[in-house]
Design a protein around this nucleic acid. Structure first.
Lengths: 116, 116
DNA sequence: AGCACAAACTCTACATTGCAGAGTATACGA
DNA sequence: TCGTATACTCTGCAATGTAGAGTTTGTGCT
């Protein structure tokens, strides 16, 4: 069994948020994105240490950009998916889709009828 | 932010496999199910310690059933979702669906066109 | 009965990932 | 220059995931 590494649950959330936000993906925005879409609270430390780890794995790259407009505060560290990151994200999502596909819980399909 | 706890990645895989296998969900079958659907190898210890932890959280219940047919070996420990487990599974899946919905990676939608 | 074999679970140790919050840096505006 | 807002860093610890050797228990053969 070959066993490509699979993203942890929070790592996956972060990668998805980065993919969705595109050029606006930096700490605070990622946090708000995850908190608003899910009912999950995002600890500040969890977020940044996960970003670092994803960077170490080569899944994310960063560019630091000083306060552009009249915004207060220090520079933002924007991030984006690397090709390896995009691949890892696709792979994790696909494995998950395969596992969820057709599963029923208490007679109800787990995913909406549109999904498989 | 309320923050219901979310299942870890491997926990989610196990719960999904239990839901799918229904009355045939025991260690070996779960392992084969996960390994065959994904390309992820499942360590024996990972599986059983995860099952235990899910039991501790009240998400799974167990029944031990001695070798029924002419099968060799010791008794199997079958497991099934409790109501709390079913709820946790639905919740984790739904949060994931919300995060994945509409996300594009490299111009391609992450999920097939049928999905959202 | 005694033994090899197979299936299945248990146990222990450790690695990775996630959580929490205090701390530091930097910029704006009064 | 001081208070406030934004944003990232750091450190310690908790939870989850990995790995594989070990034990239990039944079958079937001799």
């Amino acid at each position: 069994m070959k066993a490509k590494k699979i993203l942890g649950d929070f790592e996956l959330y972060v990668m998805l948020a980065v993919a969705r936000l595109g050029d606006d993906a930096y700490g605070g925005a990622l946090r708000r994105e995850i908190e608003s879409r899910t009912e999950r609270s995002v600890a500040i430390g969890a977020l940044y240490s996960t970003l670092d780890r994803l960077g170490d794995k080569g899944y994310l790259s960063f560019r630091v950009e000083g306060p552009e407009s009249g915004r207060p505060g220090r520079a933002r560290k924007y991030c984006r998916l690397t090709p390896a990151g995009a691949e890892a994200l696709r792979h994790s999502s696909e494995m998950l889709r395969r596992m969820m596909e057709g599963v029923q819980v208490g007679g109800e399909p787990l995913l909406g009828q549109a999904n498989q």
